[in-house]
Design a protein around this nucleic acid. Structure first.
Lengths: 340, 340
DNA sequence: ACCGCTTACGTAACCGGTTACATTATGGCA
DNA sequence: TGCCATAATGTAACCGGTTACGTAAGCGGT
């Protein structure tokens, strides 16, 4: 009772039970037969001593950490809740631990990674939390990796799971044009060099092209998929007297859309009467925003869980899906101009 | 290059550099002087061999895991984003890893904990992710623990950090009564046995008492701080023809408030004209809901970071604050009836 | 009675680091 | 010149598990 549990080892148990450490270990792992008589005795002694196997020792002996890591770019987006939930479910069901860290390669000088082979058996890498070179390096060393919302660079073969960006965005922008007669649609870009950003822009441009509308760089802002950034960007855009007029905003994602809402409201512009606003993700709150946000439904929790599943395929030597693309579709609410 | 990095040990480095493992270790940890000549040689060899120290071996030798754990009840609430962000910042700055898991003692039979002394050096325990007995047990063993949004049971001395619940709730409900003339205020309770639930109810009752309004059990629902649960509860409440009329809802938290919004709208009830709605937390989206949600501002990210800080106090042998109570205050928006 | 095979268990090496202690080299001082 | 304090390095035990290998007992078949 008063004994520090940390000091009780498998040898203590073995001694008290009058057996060898091997037998105790075998009993613990159930990986070799142990007679019932000894099993009982061992169990009794373990209870008595409050024995808890030290995982670290186990890890060292087995050369695995029983943990997988999740690298995120930040945590200030409601997008990450569902993602984490999806991942955690799978990870737990496999009996693994989940390490979480944020990381932005462009912000740090040294090559130190918070998560990697030194503390995990495999990594889930979200978007740009790692650079292409870092991914290639890990992959070359045979370290199990799966990418989330990012495709690997040319030549590196790493499973990835993401969502369909382009078609849905195109459809959404097309809706703005076709259904609501919008023609000057502001593009709120996502983070630089980010893949979702890229494909959403491609979809946006395609929709414009479909209707013979010229792409206008002046109608372009950097929203970074972050509410505050989007807010600030649009705010400065609006104070600039020279700015071209616009009648709609594709916000990049739902979080940025909220920043857009904020800036528009402060400028006295009504949504959707004066300007339509649309997002991407269909985060939990978007149906309840004022007005309800027209957006693209992305199955974020499913993305998380299938990414985790692919990683476990790798860990268990099965061959994973190299590419998992979750479908998306637009959901029309009031912010684009549709009736409730 | 083609060598598996996993097979390179400190002994390899030592041999190649013509020094002892002790010297390499000392150079790595900078905890004892190493001559410049050898240091250079060691560094060169490490670069050449792509040597990465195996953390698990280190953990075993040092008898610490260099990781802290966070136990959550679930991840489907926007509340957890800021909480995690606050924690992660501190954890990273201390050079530790962060393990995250969900856990509900009432839902599981065995006493197995996903996080504990076997894989972490200390634990952040959110609300009811652990039962009182489990907390007491861990605490007795001297395992570093800090509670979040929960106070320890009588007699167990564990640091905790939470927010002021009662006074703010009382003030908010008082506002409904005084400023908006509401008298039949529905109470959407939080999770059973949960402390925030309890104190918010106490605040609610106190406000009623202040105005001589009798507490009415019939005006009471279980919302569990979850949107879906709150929605379902209110939904069935509303179809029941016998139900007493009400003119306001204290939703328990912002997430539940959204569920309340949903159910009310479907019932054709206008917010705030027909019924006022108020929440708790001031989550990121609440200013942007339709209508903007009157609520209580709780510094969730600060709660996370100060909890983590207390835990590191424990780990480093300093004496932590036993009790950290973050102040809260009401923020008035339109859902209660106030003008924008 | 003897052989071979299976089953239950013990011994000791091993995983890859840290570190107490021993050892050697160096410099200051009487 | 001899002696001691000090600094730099090496040796080997240790952290707490797992497991290859060896051994003894039990059992069936001829």
């Amino acid at each position: 009772m008063t004994k520090r549990s940390s000091s009780i080892t498998i040898r203590d148990v073995a001694r008290e039970a009058g057996v060898s450490v091997a037998t105790v270990s075998r009993y613990l792992n159930q990986n070799a037969p142990v007679s019932e008589k000894l099993a009982d005795r061992i169990q009794r002694v373990m209870d008595e001593l409050d024995y808890i196997p030290q995982e670290t020792a186990r890890h060292l002996a087995l050369r695995r950490k029983n943990a997988i890591g999740l690298l995120l770019t930040n945590m200030h987006n409601d997008f990450f809740g569902p993602l984490l939930a999806g991942i955690e479910t799978i990870v737990r069901s496999e009996g693994y631990n989940l390490l979480v860290a944020t990381c932005r390669p462009e912000l740090q000088t040294d090559s130190y990674l918070p998560l990697g082979g030194h503390n995990t058996d495999g990594l889930l890498v979200f978007a740009n939390s790692l650079g292409d070179e870092q991914i290639a390096q890990l992959s070359e060393r045979g370290f199990p990796l799966v990418l989330i919302h990012k495709t690997p660079a040319e030549g590196v073969s790493v499973p990835f799971v993401t969502v369909e960006n382009k078609a849905a965005t195109r459809k959404l922008v097309d809706h703005l044009i076709t259904a609501h007669g919008r023609r000057r649609i502001l593009l709120m870009r996502g983070p630089e060099q980010q893949e979702d950003s890229y494909w959403r822009e491609v979809g946006y441009r395609a929709a414009l092209a479909d209707h013979g509308i010229a792409f206008d760089e002046a109608l372009t802002l950097r929203g970074s998929f972050e509410r505050e950034v989007a807010y600030a960007a649009l705010k400065t855009f609006l104070v600039d007297a020279q700015h071209p007029l616009f009648d709609a905003v594709f916000a990049g994602d739902d979080d940025a859309a909220v920043g857009v809402y904020e800036a528009l409201k402060e400028a006295g512009l009504r949504i959707p009467e004066d300007v339509s606003v649309v997002g991407f993700d269909d985060s939990r709150m978007s149906p309840f925003l004022m007005p309800p946000l027209t957006t693209v439904r992305a199955p974020t929790e499913a993305v998380g869980s299938s990414a985790a599943r692919q990683l476990f395929c790798l860990l268990e030597g099965e061959t994973p899906e190299l590419e998992t693309l979750h479908p998306t579709d637009i959901v029309l609410r009031r912010s684009c101009g549709c009736a409730t």
